[in-house]
Computed example of a mutant assay.
Amino acid sequence: MNAVLSNALFNLGTLATVCVALVMAPSPLLNSPSVPFGVRVPPDKANAPEVAAQRRRYRTLLLAATAVVAVLALVASATLDGPAVGAIGGSLLLTVVAIALWSRAHRAVTDAKQQGGWYEQTRQGAVTDTSLRTDPVRFPWPWAIPAFAVVAVTALVGALVYPDLPVQMTLPQKSAAGTVYREYPTTFWTAFALVLAQILVTASMAGTVAGILRARADLDVSRPRTSAARYRRYLTSMSRSVLGMAALLNLMLFGLSGMMWSDNRSQVLMAFVVGVPVLAVLGITAHLVLRVGPGGSRLPADIDEPASGLVPRDDDRFWHAAGMVYVNTDDLAIMVPRRVGFGWTVNLGNLRFLVVTAILVAAGIGVAVAVGV
C-alpha cells in the first residue's frame, strides 16, 4: 500500500511540475511581452484583449488537460506496474497538448494582428550596438575555474582508484520499473564515463557562453542606449550563471563517480549527490527569471533616455513552428534571442552553423562507432 501511494505521489508531483512549467510558458516572466505566443506585436498591443483571451484559454484548457492526463497516468502506472511509466508518458502527452494549444493561440494572435492592422500606423525600426563587436563583453574566465577544477579533481581521484577497481563494475540504469543495476567489464570507458561527461558538459557550457557573447542582441528601438547598457549586464549575468551551472553539474557527476567506484548504492546518498546540485541550478534559474528577466528586462537602467517613437519591426516571416524556429539566410548571426522561452536559439538559415553541426554529428557518430568496435 505504501508503494502504491508513493508511486501515485511521484506521478502527481511530476505532472504538477510539468504543468506549472507549461502554464508559465506564455508568461512575461519567460517571454518578452511584445512577442505573445511567438507573434511580434507593437508594445501597446502586448496586453490587447485578443492576446489576454488567448492566454486565459491556453491556461484553462491546459489545466483541464492536466487533470485528465493525471488520471490516465495513475491508471497506466498501476496497470503496467512501473512507477515512472505514468510520469514519463503523462509528461510527454501533456507537452504535446501544450504545443497544440500554443500553436492554436499563435494562429489566433496572428489573425488578430493582421485583421486589426496593428502595424499599419506604426513607425518600425531596428537598432544595433556596434560596440558589442568593437568592445565586446569578455569571457568570464575566473567563473570557469570551478568547473575545470572539479573535472581535474575527479580525473585525479579516478586515476588513483582505477588500479584497484574490480573486474566487473555495477552501474545503475533507469527503467520504467525504477533503478536497476547491471554489471559491465571494467574498462577505461566504463570507469571514466562520467569524467568524459564532465568534459562534455564543461566544453558545451563554455561554448554556449562564447556563443551568447557574440549572439545578435534584441535591443529596444524605443530606448536603444538604455537597452544596450542593460543588455551588457544581461550578458555578464547569463555567462556567469551558465558557468556556475557547469560547476554544479560537474560536482554532481563527481559524486556519482565516487559512488560508482566504491559500489555504493545508498539511495539517501544518491538523493543528496543529485538533489543538492539540481536544487542549486534551479535556484540560479529562478534568479535569472525573477531578477534578470528576458533580455535583462528586469535589470536596473542607469540611463534616462526619451522614447524614440519607434516600434520593433514585424519580422514574423523569419519565425516558423509557432515562433519557435528561426530561419533567415540573410542574417549572419548564428545565435539570436529566442521568442519562446528564455535565452537564445540558433539561426537554421546560417550556412556556417549547418556545416559545423554536420561535422560535429559526423564526428560523434564516428566516435560512437569506434568505441562500439
Score class of each variant (00 low, 15 high):
Pro172Asn: 00
Glu50Trp: 07
Ala363Thr: 10
Met259Trp: 12
Asn7Arg: 13
Arg107Cys: 00
Gly244Val: 06
Leu15Ile: 03
Ser239Arg: 13
Ile359Asn: 07
Val276Gln: 10
Ser103Leu: 03
Pro83His: 08
Gly211Cys: 07
Val369Lys: 13
Ala16Asn: 04
Ala286Arg: 07
Tyr234Ile: 07
Ala126Phe: 10
Thr202Lys: 10
Ala321Met: 02
Ala53Trp: 02
Gln54Ser: 04
Ala76Ser: 11
Asp111Glu: 12
Asn350Val: 01
Thr79His: 11
Gly372Lys: 07
Val221Arg: 11
Phe254Glu: 05
Ile303Asp: 08
Met169Val: 07
Pro300His: 04
Ile303Val: 13
Ala228Glu: 11
Gly117Tyr: 05
Leu253Val: 03
Gly255Cys: 08
Asp315Trp: 01
Val35Ser: 06
Ala46Ile: 05
Trp189Leu: 13
Ser266Ala: 01
Gln168Ile: 00
Leu74Phe: 13
Ser34Cys: 06
Ser131Ile: 01
Phe342Ile: 03
Ala229Cys: 00
Val355His: 05
Thr154Met: 14
Gly309Glu: 13
Ser103Asn: 08
Ser237Val: 04
Gln173Asp: 00
Ala280Thr: 04
Asn350Thr: 02
Met270Leu: 14
Pro49Tyr: 04
Ile365Trp: 14
Leu80Asp: 05
Ala229Glu: 13
Val18Ala: 15
Ala217Asp: 10
Val75Trp: 14
Thr128Trp: 12
Val289Pro: 04
Asp330Arg: 15
Ala177Thr: 04
Val41Asp: 02
Arg56Glu: 05
Val281Ser: 02
Val327Gln: 10
Val367Asp: 06
Ser308Leu: 02
Tyr326Val: 00
Val355Tyr: 06
Leu101Val: 02
Tyr184Lys: 00
Asn350Ser: 10
Leu62Phe: 03
Leu61Gln: 10
Val281Gln: 06
Thr122Gly: 02
Ala333Thr: 06
Val242Thr: 07
Pro36Ser: 02
Val346Met: 10
Val161Tyr: 12
Leu348Gly: 03
Thr154Cys: 10
Val20Arg: 15
Gly341Ile: 05
Ala25Tyr: 10
Gly255Arg: 11
Ala358His: 10
Ala112Cys: 06
Arg56Pro: 00
Tyr119Val: 00
Ala247Phe: 09
Val150Tyr: 08
Ala301Leu: 07
Met1His: 15
Ala144Gln: 11
Met169Ser: 14
Ala3Tyr: 09
Met238Ala: 08
Ala229Trp: 09
Met260Leu: 04
Thr154Leu: 09
Thr236Arg: 15
Ala191Met: 07
Arg317Ala: 07
Arg223Ile: 03
Asn328Gly: 02
His287Trp: 09
Met1Gln: 13
Thr66Glu: 08
